[in-house]
Design a protein around this nucleic acid. Sequence first.
DNA 1: TGTATCGGATACATTCCTGTATCGAACGGA
DNA 2: TCCGTTCGATACAGGAATGTATCCGATACA
Lengths: 211, 211
Amino acid sequence: MAVEQTTRRVTRRRVRTRANLLDAAFAVFAAKGFGRVSIEEVCEAAGYSRGAFYSNFDSLDELFFALYRQRADLIAEQVTEALALDGPGLDVPASVDRVTEVLLLDVDWLLVKTDFLVHAARDRAVAQTLLEHRERLRRAIEERLARATGHTALPAVLGGVDGAARAVVAAYDGVTTQLLLDKDIERARVWLGQLLTALLTDGSGRPEQDL
Amino acid sequence: MAVEQTTRRVTRRRVRTRANLLDAAFAVFAAKGFGRVSIEEVCEAAGYSRGAFYSNFDSLDELFFALYRQRADLIAEQVTEALALDGPGLDVPASVDRVTEVLLLDVDWLLVKTDFLVHAARDRAVAQTLLEHRERLRRAIEERLARATGHTALPAVLGGVDGAARAVVAAYDGVTTQLLLDKDIERARVWLGQLLTALLTDGSGRPEQDL
DNA sequence: TGTATCGGATACATTCCTGTATCGAACGGA
DNA sequence: TCCGTTCGATACAGGAATGTATCCGATACA
């Protein structure tokens, strides 16, 4: 953290500045990619000088990390909420619609998240953070699926609720990759729905909706 | 391209230099990520001065592009070959083993490829190249699956051989994402096998091996 | 409202990287 | 082997980004 001290009077101005810097960073990172952005650019976009930056962060890496945490937490909450909404039956299309509303809506977030992925792939500590975020999401899915068992059967190949949840995440990641290239959100949404239906049904051709 | 001229005597030395630069770039990009690499670093790793670089490329972007094409072509060939090998029956585990031997073996390649993905996600022209590469692979898979129909049935939800091939690619992408974080190749391989089995069987619980 | 502290602007030194221009050595063809 | 061409090393100038030190206006709190 920038400026260590046992006690520190944190003013409102500081909080605002920090938030503005993070917001500006998000926009700039999304547009140009983390690797092509300088501290100055972020400051300029936020309407501050570099003095403000160094007063709040030690490096661009630290800011990126903070940015990721902020948004990832937000999204994890939203997804958990969205999954908690519906009843015990597993209405795949409805759930997918609601969740993708959160997860696939904002291509900018996908861009930044992928930047963060390649960043994490080269740094154990950062990777750990990302893995934890992913696990939180997977857990939420797992619980959702668990509530549905008894009502519906999952395909055996994946090995229980745990495997099924992993499969959902993998499908999401797979669809994301394609989406980053063709930028066709609607297509991605439909496609994810199909994939999940294929993965979460026993394959009798009868999707397990509303059972 | 660097140094345009209608006719040009290309010496062997030049070819060697170019190849060395590309190889060095691959190593450096894999280790540090495209965004954190300077032209000088690539040259140093290759044992050349910057003069050699500018004689062969105009920018780091151009080199990156050339590097991607080179490796992507190689891999597309290998995958096509691997898929052409076996008979008309669809032996999912065997095919997966053989293909992942090529696709998931080299984490360095996955790192570079993902760097290229985020690069492409922000540049239409580059994205086009990546999409073409992906389509080549998808076609190879499609043909493989087509040869298997009549012997085996695919789940209807995905909508024919086309959809099934897309699903295979998505599964691969999904597993790749996780692999980049946990670096566990064996796990990834097993996991991809399970996913594909789940996706490509009619879900009766009976994988369509050796039919 | 007064005052001590905090936050951010500004200016500066520095480092790193880029791109170009030039030159000698290596190369290939005869 | 000789010669014209090509390749890559070296030196240089310019620019861009970084991090720090300093200062003044803003802010919290009594």
